[in-house]
Amino acid sequence: MQFFGSSEISPSPPAPTASGNNAHMMYVFNRNGVCLLYREWNRPLRTLDAQQDQKLMFGLLFSLKSLTAKMDPTTAEKGNLGVPQLPGQGCSFHSFRTNTYKLSFMETPSGIKLILVTHPRTGDLREPLKYIYNLYVEYVAKNPLYTPGTPIKCELFNTSLDQYVRSIA
């Protein structure tokens, strides 16, 4: 749904880095930990029900962020472990890799967290995540029918996300 003429999404999508279907799933959380979007493309293994899974994912990211903020070896002033920090404050992380998947993470200044889970050998996804955030701004944040903090039910966003993710991973 585009209400404001033919506004172009900027920047233009980064060049495709892979072709195929290597993306597993995508999560979008807001700053309160509410899961705004969960999208799944290829997930053979489910250990928990959807809500528990989302809570666990948010908890993992939250704790990993406090771990990296405390571990940061380049600054002396780090505060105590586990003290909540504002988005952009302290040392954060952008991805981690296990033998079965790679998780790429981006947090915007407003506290929106974008998480993309892909094949472990996927390259750096920081730029693609920025582009996905652009899609979010264009199709969700600018949608007058969307109430902030509620699950995203915007077809245009979902289709463009599917299309884009298929082109990058």
Partner: peptide
Amino acid sequence: PISGCSGIELLQADTF
């Protein structure tokens, strides 16, 4: 998402 995961091998933070 796939069985047989053995945990994080590499964590890439902003400064380390």
